[in-house]
Design a protein around this nucleic acid. Sequence first.
DNA 1: TTTATATGTCAACATGACTGACATAAAATC
DNA 2: GATTTTATGTCAGTCATGTTGACATATAAA
Lengths: 162, 162
Amino acid sequence: MTDIKSNDDSLFLREEELRQGIELLFYAYRDFTSDPDEILTEYRFGRAHHRAVHFIGRNPGMTVAELLAILRITKQSLSRVLSQLIDRGFVEQKKGAEDRRQRLLYLTESGVALELRLSRPQQARVARAYSEAGAEAVEGYRKVLMGLINEEDRARLKKTYR
Amino acid sequence: MTDIKSNDDSLFLREEELRQGIELLFYAYRDFTSDPDEILTEYRFGRAHHRAVHFIGRNPGMTVAELLAILRITKQSLSRVLSQLIDRGFVEQKKGAEDRRQRLLYLTESGVALELRLSRPQQARVARAYSEAGAEAVEGYRKVLMGLINEEDRARLKKTYR
DNA sequence: TTTATATGTCAACATGACTGACATAAAATC
DNA sequence: GATTTTATGTCAGTCATGTTGACATATAAA
């Protein structure tokens, strides 16, 4: 019985630790998205627009299918956001050279400017957190976040991040 | 000029590092919410229900105002979610003893069961990431996430996490 | 020539945010 | 005791963003 009890205790401690890890992610994500969210309302855009602009900026010439795979949303969902970004001149599409069915995605000049404007406060927030926590902590942050990501993307990111 | 150039290079490196830190948070949050999201559809609940259940479970007897402050949403937004949870017997309200205007929030027995069911896969994911990354990395993860959180909540969490 | 793929579009619907206005009960203040 | 403030709830309308399902078109691959 005492064995079980002490086992229980360590499980409680472990569970509390895990719950904190979960909560921290919620709070961090909540605040980390709040900066760009404010700017986005100026443009009457939402968080979905930011995500699209971010990933197109990071991967110029990516296909629609690739973007869909990253965002994990339906093409109908992306379509609305994407066509708004295109209509208003932040994103442009070019036919693929090899495969002409593909519509390769690029930020326009204003798209780059928008992306920069949105990411600036986010980068500032991360920069502050990084420098306060120190290089070793940053390594740990990356390791754990990487471990939270599904296998497929984790593998892909491991490659591109080196 | 060469000085400026080399300075530029280090800024590029830094920016790439920050962008990775931002992306990682996106990917981790995306996958980390996907497990409970699936379970929630069974109940015809959404992510908002999970958040409410999580925080009420963590803070039994909390007031509506406290929950609103954590979630950072309007009372009208919370109202729908909360009344659904109450109607279907996952949450109950009790009048405050000192201040009888307050409606203190508690999980019912089924509420506890639901919370457990939702958090199990999430805890498993965090547990795996933690054990793969190691104790030192976990410390770093916590430090950086804490640094990403707005001052007020950071201060509160620092207290309760010790 | 046929089939599969990449993309787009129309329509209908659900969720969860928002604003604004108003209501009630209880606490706090004058 | 009367008035004001606070905690909470509710009604109504709107918006952003996700979903499913059906269908269309151009191009690549078989």
